[in-house]
């Protein structure tokens, strides 16, 4: 076995690690970098619990090889809050009780942020389809959708204030 040396950025910070060719990005994050926020729910891309962004694009980290991220920037749940300040989505998920067990929550937050980055004013249908790659078994999704709707509304208000 020969390790592959990879240089990349995680949440903007430079990282260097060695991984095997068959290790996924999820393996690398969890087992080599100690970033266990991304969860392994299926390892086949069907549950979204391991969602991250690669150069800003939403993806399942279980469907990416660790070796592939050479030179790329990965966004994970650990990079979502700014210091003590939670991202509005994080706050709204807690406020709306949009999590019960919470294991799907990091994936949902990454996916929801990716959705709102592209579409700051999504309809309920757009939110539902935008989050269809993330499974939640506890909530029935109702409160998750409401949390995203409420965040979008608040962020639009904040942004228009900033713009003015």
């Amino acid at each position: 076995m020969s390790g592959i040396t990879v240089n990349a950025k995680i949440n903007g910070d430079p990282v260097e690690f060695i991984c095997e060719a068959d290790e996924t990005l999820l393996d690398v994050l969890r087992n080599r970098l100690g970033l266990t926020g991304a969860k392994e729910g299926c390892s086949t891309g069907d549950c979204g619990a391991c969602s991250v962004t690669v150069d800003g694009r939403l993806t399942c980290s279980c469907l990416v090889l660790g070796a592939e991220i050479e030179g790329h920037n990965i966004g994970t749940i650990e990079g979502m809050a700014h210091g003590e300040e939670l991202h509005p989505l994080q706050k709204k998920f807690i406020e709306h009780a949009a999590l019960q067990c919470g294991v799907c929550t990091p994936g949902f937050l990454i996916a929801a942020k990716s959705l709102l980055d592209k579409n700051p004013d999504p309809t309920e249908t757009e939110i539902r389809f935008g989050l269809a790659g993330n499974l939640c078994r506890c909530t029935g999704y109702d409160k998750i959708v409401r949390a995203v709707q409420d965040t979008a509304k608040e962020m639009r208000k904040t942004n228009s204030r900033k713009g003015a």
């Binding site: 970033l35 266990t36 926020g37 991304a38 969860k39 994970t76 749940i77 650990e78 979502m80 809050a81 939670l86 994080q90 998920f93 807690i94 999590l99 919470g102 294991v103 929550t105 990091p106 937050l109």
Partner: peptide, 11 residues
């Protein structure tokens, strides 16, 4: 809540 939205809750 905070542990669970920041990814640091230990499952």
């Amino acid at each position: 809540g905070i542990d669970k939205v920041t990814g640091r809750a230990k499952f």
